[in-house]
Write a protein that binds this DNA or RNA. Sequence first.
DNA 1: CGAATCCTTGAGTTCCCTCAAGAGAAGTGG
DNA 2: CCACTTCTCTTGAGGGAACTCAAGGATTCG
Lengths: 229, 229
Amino acid sequence: MERILAALNRMPLFGGLSREELLRFREIAQEKSFGRAEWIFSEGDEGEGFYVILEGRVKIFKLSPSGKEQILHLFGPGDSFGEVAVFEGGSFPANAQALQDTRALFFPRAAFRALLRNHPDFALKLLADLSRKLREFTMQIESLALKEIPARLASYLLYLAREQPGDGNVVTLAISKGELARLLGTIPETLSRIFARLSGQGLIRVTGRRIALLDRAGLEALAREGRIP
Amino acid sequence: MERILAALNRMPLFGGLSREELLRFREIAQEKSFGRAEWIFSEGDEGEGFYVILEGRVKIFKLSPSGKEQILHLFGPGDSFGEVAVFEGGSFPANAQALQDTRALFFPRAAFRALLRNHPDFALKLLADLSRKLREFTMQIESLALKEIPARLASYLLYLAREQPGDGNVVTLAISKGELARLLGTIPETLSRIFARLSGQGLIRVTGRRIALLDRAGLEALAREGRIP
DNA sequence: CGAATCCTTGAGTTCCCTCAAGAGAAGTGG
DNA sequence: CCACTTCTCTTGAGGGAACTCAAGGATTCG
């Protein structure tokens, strides 16, 4: 219990709340666990509440009738998902599945909304959280609509380099290359070919899930312009 | 002034507020006008506040280095835009341009956030508003990543049929076909060819900006499955 | 060590974009 | 009201990026 309060407090969403406030939120939440590959909810399901990840990884994705998958978000500890259904509409707009064994807190809709009414500062944090997701979607739409796949991959690798600690010239994929393909809006075969092409051009070196960025300037040009100058 | 209060009150965002509350919001807002094709803000600009449209139409869009455009949103009277910069980050994630002469209320960031703190119900409305936008982005990403252009067009026509009054078998485009192409993630030439193809298949009949939906079931199958059964 | 999953490579096809040019519609001014 | 420009839309030819299908190689895991 104490550990959960501490974990909550480290999250952007719950950071800065007093101990009493944290307890109030903790009280209405239920802990839930999901095994690897387990579905957390499906598109169209009634959204009775939303989730905050304590441990593990979750993907949010859409499926086409023919079975092609597009990943919308990858979430880890401290991230929340499923808020849309709490504030609007009632149903989940996409599917959620655990990529690893995952523990999460589930906040029931009605109790959470009631609590929110008495914590306007927390509402501002939530607004910031949703705004960040809108900004990320904006970038993803730009990526899908305006960039070719090599440029999307370059952008993603540079994003990883910014996020991951280290000298920034070696990044490690947290997901399989297949999942990465579905995140970038393509299929494993195409991604594999593009990894080979960028390696051949001396931009990167791929060793399993570790990718060395050999030519930052070239990758940045590729991400920006779609080609190497 | 009275007319603006009434207009605000008719919007989902400001509906249900008391007259005093409305006045408080109105007090901090500045009225701004934009001519057709005028830029309201650019991607990366510092977001000093957000806008609520009183009259006119606005598009929110991204541009690629090569000049290709992807429209993210089309907004009309009662819609708000630019909130992301108010709650997170500070800069606008995309460009905004008036499609027609437009009047809008501008709510400065700091004053608005201060006011929000005392109106938790209004914060819930804003959360619902952002959630709706997230849901729309989810659909747009699905469309771009998982559907071919004929399916995107069919979805859009059926969406118009739902939105527009009438028997639902004739819809009118509020935007030019060029803009529609940029909304669907394609170019005018391709859209034109697809209009011709769907007309040839007897699904629609195009007369300028008026489009008759001749075969709803066929269009629905196309939107869903990407092909006609 | 064997099974299952993940990844890579090849061949062929399709969808859509680029480039180019002409037709139509709409707005301007004489 | 008609000639003019200007913008918007349509149609054609060609090419390229990425997908489908297919099969073999590499990892991982029990």
